Deep mutational scan, measured.
Amino acid sequence: HYVEVNGKKIQATSAEEAEKIAKKFAKIYNATVLDLGNYYKVT
C-alpha cells in the first residue's frame, strides 16, 4: 500500500495507514483523495 502525492510515492504498512496519510496530505494541499484500489492518489 502506498500514497502518491505530487508524483512521489509514500509507502504505508496498511490500507488504513495509507488512507490516513492520503487524507492528511489532501487536507494540507486542499486536494482530493482518489482510492485506486491498491493505492491512494492525492490530486
Rank of each mutant, 00 (worst) to 15 (best):
residue 10 I to Y: 11
residue 5 V to D: 00
residue 27 K to N: 09
residue 4 E to Q: 06
residue 17 E to S: 07
residue 35 D to L: 13
residue 36 L to A: 04
residue 8 K to D: 06
residue 35 D to F: 14
residue 25 F to L: 15
residue 33 V to W: 08
residue 31 A to D: 05
residue 15 A to D: 05
residue 22 A to V: 05
residue 13 T to F: 10
residue 31 A to L: 15
residue 36 L to R: 04
residue 16 E to F: 09
residue 43 T to V: 15
residue 32 T to F: 10
residue 34 L to H: 09
residue 14 S to D: 07
residue 26 A to I: 05
residue 38 N to K: 09
residue 35 D to C: 12
residue 33 V to D: 02
residue 5 V to E: 00
residue 2 Y to Q: 01
residue 15 A to Q: 14
residue 22 A to D: 01
residue 3 V to M: 01
residue 22 A to L: 04
residue 29 Y to I: 06
residue 22 A to I: 03
residue 30 N to A: 08
residue 6 N to C: 15
residue 24 K to A: 13
residue 28 I to W: 14
residue 33 V to F: 07
residue 22 A to M: 04
residue 7 G to F: 04
residue 41 K to Q: 12
residue 26 A to H: 04
residue 41 K to W: 07
residue 20 K to V: 09
residue 26 A to E: 08
residue 40 Y to C: 11
residue 29 Y to W: 10
residue 16 E to G: 08
residue 21 I to T: 03
residue 17 E to L: 08
residue 5 V to C: 10
residue 4 E to T: 04
residue 13 T to S: 14
residue 16 E to Y: 10
residue 26 A to L: 06
residue 9 K to S: 05
residue 23 K to N: 12
residue 36 L to Y: 13
residue 32 T to H: 10
residue 32 T to S: 10
residue 5 V to Q: 01
residue 31 A to W: 10
residue 12 A to S: 04
residue 11 Q to V: 13
residue 39 Y to M: 06
residue 25 F to W: 12
residue 33 V to K: 01
residue 14 S to L: 03
residue 35 D to T: 07
residue 3 V to T: 02
residue 23 K to Q: 13
residue 7 G to Y: 03
residue 39 Y to E: 03
residue 11 Q to N: 13
residue 35 D to H: 15
residue 40 Y to L: 13
residue 18 A to I: 02
residue 13 T to K: 14
residue 28 I to L: 14
residue 6 N to L: 14
residue 11 Q to G: 09
residue 38 N to S: 13
residue 17 E to A: 11
residue 33 V to C: 11
residue 21 I to A: 02
residue 11 Q to M: 15
residue 25 F to C: 14
residue 24 K to L: 14
residue 7 G to W: 04
residue 30 N to F: 07
residue 38 N to W: 11
residue 13 T to E: 13
residue 6 N to T: 03
residue 24 K to W: 15
residue 15 A to S: 10
residue 29 Y to V: 05
residue 23 K to F: 10
residue 42 V to C: 07
residue 2 Y to A: 03
residue 14 S to P: 00
residue 22 A to W: 07
residue 36 L to W: 03
residue 27 K to P: 03
residue 10 I to E: 00
residue 43 T to M: 13
residue 12 A to L: 06
residue 24 K to I: 14
residue 39 Y to W: 11
residue 4 E to N: 03
residue 1 H to W: 15
residue 5 V to K: 01
residue 10 I to G: 01
residue 28 I to H: 12
residue 35 D to Y: 14
residue 14 S to M: 03
residue 16 E to K: 13
residue 30 N to L: 06
residue 4 E to F: 08
residue 25 F to I: 14
residue 29 Y to P: 04
residue 15 A to P: 09
residue 4 E to K: 04
residue 25 F to P: 01
residue 14 S to I: 03
residue 8 K to W: 13
residue 6 N to I: 05
residue 40 Y to T: 05
residue 9 K to E: 05
residue 18 A to T: 00
residue 22 A to R: 01
residue 26 A to M: 06
residue 20 K to A: 13
residue 19 E to H: 14
residue 2 Y to L: 03
residue 32 T to L: 12
residue 11 Q to C: 15
residue 32 T to M: 13
residue 37 G to K: 02
residue 18 A to L: 02
residue 9 K to G: 02
residue 40 Y to A: 04
residue 10 I to F: 09
residue 21 I to N: 00
residue 43 T to Q: 12
residue 8 K to F: 13
residue 8 K to I: 14
residue 18 A to M: 06
residue 36 L to V: 06
residue 32 T to W: 08
residue 28 I to Y: 14
residue 39 Y to A: 05
residue 19 E to T: 06
residue 8 K to H: 14
residue 7 G to E: 03
residue 20 K to E: 12
residue 23 K to L: 13
residue 7 G to R: 03
residue 20 K to I: 10
residue 24 K to F: 15
residue 13 T to Y: 09
